[in-house]
Design a protein around this nucleic acid. Structure first.
Length: 285
DNA sequence: GTACTTGTTAAACT
DNA sequence: TAGTTTAACAAGTA
């Protein structure tokens, strides 16, 4: 699942690949994935992306056309992959080094640049989207997000005030993008494990020591995951088509039935706030 | 065939 | 009112 580290990985790569390249043509199928399909296809040719920003898990593409931006959310299974070559005679790309064919059967958008390179948006489950947005709309979207754990001004006091009076679970609190932006199911489980806190604890019952650990590890885990290109479990790919590397560092996520790396106790999988949740029953209290 | 998976949001509760 | 919970979405897997 693309969470902050995966989206940031894509952002950093795409900044190197597609900025200042004029768009030649856009191909997109009729689908809810692309907000106003007609406008999207009509307005982008001739335009260049000038910057790519990120708020939480939302990507914001700035362009050289006034008041014109592109918002992109990968949700669960979205992929944004760049291919720096002309397609084969048949019309597609065979990326043998990363075991990918593009476009594939879940590719919904193909942005073709004038130099012949392509940016493909694919999404098996069709939860993600790519759509045009005005400057105001972008601002409105950005305002919906809470603090980012990797932001330079992320403070312990911010986290403490979030936990202070809430009666919801730690898991639900950390998954709520309006409160803390960027954590999803994978990293919430990992942060809770490293903090020694059970995700089904009620937020207001945490001690200040526990909140300090949540503060510290939410930053550390996300930063480490960004450094190794995110986590690839099932469908996530970096913008160059390669897989991420953080799956090699996971302590609890999808390790149910296996021994805890710290104490050897079997990791269990339960349900917290309706979501699959992985816990070491001994290391987490 | 049925249950289950998830990021986000809208609706339904308290 | 604000906080919280639940269902819904799509399409694939077990």
């Amino acid at each position: 699942m693309p969470e902050l580290p995966e989206v940031e990985t894509v952002r950093r790569q795409l900044r190197r690949y597609i900025l200042q390249k004029p768009i030649k043509k856009v191909r997109a199928e009729v689908s809810k994935i692309i907000g106003n399909e007609e406008a999207f296809i009509r307005q982008l040719p001739g335009v260049s992306f000038t910057d790519i920003q990120r708020t939480g898990k939302l990507l914001i593409f700035r362009t050289n056309k006034p008041n014109t931006n592109v918002l992109c959310h990968l949700k669960m299974t979205g992929q944004l992959i760049f291919v720096d070559q002309e397609p084969k005679a048949g019309g597609g790309h065979s990326l043998t080094s990363v075991d990918l064919e593009l476009p594939h059967k879940h590719t919904h958008i193909d942005i073709i640049f004038k130099d012949g390179s392509h940016l493909y948006f694919s999404d098996m489950r069709k939860f993600g989207y790519m759509k045009l947005a005005s400057d105001d709309e972008v601002l409105r979207e950005q305002k919906k997000f809470g603090i980012e754990p990797i932001a330079p001004d992320f403070r312990y006091e911010d986290v403490a005030s979030l936990f202070a009076k809430r009666t919801t679970t730690v898991k639900a609190l950390l998954l709520n993008q309006k409160l803390v932006a960027g954590l999803g199911n994978i990293y919430v489980d990992e942060v809770c494990f490293k903090s020694g806190v059970r995700p089904d604890r009620i937020a207001s019952t945490l001690t200040s020591d526990e909140i300090k650990k949540i503060f510290k590890f939410s930053r550390e885990v996300l930063q480490h995951a960004v450094e190794v290109g995110g986590t690839t479990f099932y469908s996530f790919r970096r913008a160059d088509g390669k897989k991420g590397g953080y799956q090699n560092y996971l302590q609890v996520f999808q390790r149910d039935g296996q021994p805890c790396h710290t104490c050897g106790t079997t990791i269990i999988k339960t349900k917290v706030t309706g979501r699959g949740t992985h816990i070491c029953p001994k290391c987490q209290n």
